[in-house]
């Protein structure tokens, strides 16, 4: 299991990469969303917002009404934020569960993929 700090550290890396990626910023143009993350093993909760083409800092707990809810293990979230895990694989095997429109789910996957395209994910 990954700790909150590990997840937060991983997210900080993800956020930095995403916000610095010009292509990704184009992809999330006009896509302002609230994303809730929930871990199944540590029952932690996190909130991320996408506002003005940028990912916000990670907030502990669920804040606001979500557009998308992502549920998975703390390890999977940590690996995903580091770019070591392809979330689609986990999603297609039922280990990551999503609630939200297909359109929003696609964007999240796009972020996870494009943010690490330079090195492969």
């Amino acid at each position: 299991m990954a700790t909150r700090e590990e997840i937060a550290g991983a997210y900080a890396e993800w956020r930095q990469r995403s916000n610095a990626n010009a292509r990704l910023k184009k992809m999330v143009r006009g896509w302002d969303r609230v994303i809730h993350f929930a871990t199944t093993d540590t029952t932690d909760a996190f909130t991320v917002e996408v506002v003005g083409q940028e990912l916000s800092e990670l907030t502990f707990g669920h804040v606001g009404t979500p557009d998308v809810i992502v549920t998975g293990s703390s390890e999977d979230f940590c690996d995903m934020f580091w770019g070591d895990l392809n979330p689609s694989e986990k999603y297609m095997s039922g280990e990551i569960i999503l609630a939200g429109s297909q359109h929003d789910v696609m964007r999240i996957d796009a972020i996870s993929m494009v943010a690490f395209l330079d090195q492969g994910a």
Partner: peptide, 9 residues
């Protein structure tokens, strides 16, 4: 300010 954790489905 956070709401309690729950596996929302």
């Amino acid at each position: 300010t956070a709401t309690p954790v729950g596996l929302t489905h």
